[in-house]
Design a binder for these strands. Structure first.
Lengths: 127, 127
DNA sequence: TATTTTGTTATACTAATATTAGAACAGTTA
DNA sequence: TAACTGTTCTAATATTAGTATAACAAAATA
């Protein structure tokens, strides 16, 4: 598992970890049904505390991306075929809105935003 | 100026304030050249501390959205006609990437993302 | 069955951040 | 001149982030 943490970043370590795990899943390097490493082993691998990894896992669970089975481990949820759930979509919208507003103020138009979204999509999926 | 702060939110007050100011500008309710209220008056209006407003203003300055003139006040930057600057665009991409990755994992495809971006754009611009 | 591993929970500590508070300073504006 | 401006400073409290141990009970495994 290829994960790189920037200790000097203003983004919390557990958020960096959660984001990189999400990208690995989006890119297909981790798939639905796969088990994530135990919090202890991943913490040892990355040189961080067990509780930090635990917090990242629980962040992913709250987002509906993995399932944590008590006393057993964390498993990536199977891909949804019926499309995104409304509750998740609403959360994405709330996260996206302030960033898109910023982009608009800084001079981007509707076409620019659509192009940007497509290009980031391609980048995540692996160019 | 219509600003609503949620004290119980996990989003810091100064971030909520900065985001809502950005949306007001994106929507056109505040325009380039307009002066923002003084940090003291806005803090009094919103029932918060002067330093919290000050931090929100400096956040907007760092993003290139307003200019703060020492001993005078804060003025909204004029709209850019030459399109967004590369440095700003790069920052937007970094902010957008983890959210789009999350959307992909939760079942959204390229078309869904493009549609979502368009719909949020319309929403911000005032339906 | 016995051992190891698992996530969970609890406590404790340090560091950084967020927020409020009050005051003083020096330049701007009316 | 007088009021207002952002800046700077000190200070206090509250919350969050991160690390460090330790113990527990259930699951996996040898």
């Amino acid at each position: 598992m290829f994960i790189q943490i920037e200790p000097s970043s203003d983004i919390p370590i557990y958020t960096q970890l959660a984001n990189q795990l999400i990208e690995l899943i989006a890119r297909g390097e981790l798939s639905g049904g796969d088990a994530l490493p135990s919090v202890r082993s991943l913490a040892a691998d990355l040189g961080m505390n067990m509780h930090t990894v635990n917090k990242a896992y629980h962040t992913l669970e709250k987002k509906g991306i993995i399932a944590i089975v008590p006393k057993s481990g964390a498993i990536i949820n199977p891909p949804v075929q019926a499309g995104i759930q409304d509750s998740h979509r609403a959360r994405i919208v709330e996260e996206l809105k302030p960033i898109l507003a910023e982009a608009i103020v800084l001079g981007m138009g509707k076409e620019d935003l659509v192009t940007l979204a497509s290009s980031i999509f391609a980048d995540i999926k692996g160019e």
